[in-house]
Design a protein around this nucleic acid. Structure first.
Lengths: 110, 110
DNA sequence: TTATTACATTGCAATATTACGATAAAAAGG
DNA sequence: CCTTTTTATCGTAATATTGCAATGTAATAA
């Protein structure tokens, strides 16, 4: 049905899945990396930097913003985006936690 | 179009995005956590453990397998799944790399 | 051989995602 | 005021995802 049954899962899993979803597109990864690289923030340079149309970039930015990973400031006619450091750190810890819990000793099934 | 323009992006970004996509569903996170918890591997207990129909679980397992995160061994009529430790470690490093590159000093835009 | 058990696959319906052209909207410059 | 610049939003088309009933398959049990 294309609709995830969120009620069945833990809040933690639902939340981590939503963050993973936001990271699950190369354009969004490229946007994040660009924002990180510039430290201070960029706006519509992303449209030139990445080879996608302006509405498409705007949509990807919206996804990242809704996931809480980035923030945007209006300055004049342009909008300035940057990583939300707190959310970024939290996401980092969430993924680190997932991977740290793993790492079994053997790599064999059964 | 629902079709990602992979040619535009780096192999690294495309790969990390594909791993993130595999992690971008709470059922798949729950499956991975269960496999980790049991250390040795489980099969159709997942259908009971998670509240989804057998074909749905099978599909999620297929996604995780295609992403390379898990492996499956046939033993009798049942199939035994476990984390692919190598791929798991690689995924861990890929995410750690992404997050480590970030962490700017200020949390303000512009 | 004939169940039974455990999974995978197929087919389908409902919804989501990706991408972009066209069009708003809001600020700045003339 | 009008124009330009920059971004967001709307509408749409193509494809992907999620979920499950029905069915297929392969190994074991009877």
């Amino acid at each position: 049905m294309g609709l995830t049954k969120t009620a069945i899962f833990t809040d933690q899993d639902n939340h981590l899945a939503s963050i993973a979803k936001a990271l699950a597109h190369p354009a969004r990864l490229a946007i994040l990396k660009h924002l990180i690289k510039q430290d201070s923030c960029i706006c519509g340079d992303l449209v030139l930097e990445i080879g996608l149309a302006q509405p498409t970039i705007s949509q990807h930015l919206s996804v990242l913003k809704q996931a809480g990973l980035i923030k945007g400031n209006i300055s004049g006619t342009s909008v300035c985006y940057c990583i939300d450091t707190e959310a970024w750190q939290e996401a980092n810890e969430a993924f680190a936690g997932l991977f740290a819990s793993g790492m079994p000793t053997t790599n064999d099934c059964c």
